[in-house]
Design a protein around this nucleic acid. Structure first.
Length: 160
DNA sequence: GCCAACGTTGGC
DNA sequence: GCCAACGTTGGC
């Protein structure tokens, strides 16, 4: 017999993605509605994007600004595909070792979901014992990282 | 602007 | 495959 699991959509996974708001903020995403997450040039971050599925939930994090923190929510709306900036010699993300037939860098597309009423600062996250094992708090440099549903839900509730 | 953490590069 | 040198990220 056909089981429910055979047709059920797999549960959405959760992620945290960082952007420098001077470069691309959640307001930019709100205005554009959807955007390719280009410019990732770290293999681990790239590999996480290749694991993403449409509908996965994303915490949109503002980095390299005072204060840093989670700014809102987004959702994956297109699977990983080659990041066009790697082929563009004019782009700061140009990679001469990448070719269209053998692309090296990939990006997903994300769509805007919501902006938190106020930025949830990193400092606040540090104060929550349940979040102490978040990748963000352990490996602060990784720009695309998985988050547990528990952490995601907790952050959403803290942001209200 | 400093610097810790960590990723990448390249010589060997 | 090791590892020193170097570059980058990102909080402070």
């Amino acid at each position: 017999m056909a089981t429910a699991t055979a047709t059920a959509k797999p549960a959405a996974r959760h992620w945290l993605m960082k952007s420098e708001p001077d470069c691309f903020s959640i307001d930019h995403l709100k205005k554009k509605k959807t955007s390719g997450w280009d410019g990732v040039r770290n293999y681990q971050a790239r590999n996480f994007m290749r694991e993403m599925a449409v509908g996965d939930k994303v915490l949109f994090y503002h980095s390299s600004i005072t204060p840093p923190g989670v700014a809102g929510l987004a959702e994956v709306c297109a699977l990983a595909h080659p990041d066009p900036t790697q082929f563009d010699p004019e782009s700061e993300y140009y990679d001469p070792k990448a070719t269209p037939s053998v692309p090296r860098w990939f990006m997903v597309d994300v769509k805007y979901i919501s902006t938190f009423p106020a930025l949830l600062p990193l400092e606040r996250l540090h104060q929550i014992p349940e979040l102490s094992d978040m990748v963000l708090l352990q490996r602060s440099r990784l720009s695309v990282q998985p988050a547990s549903k528990l952490h995601y839900d907790l952050i959403v509730s803290l942001a209200k």
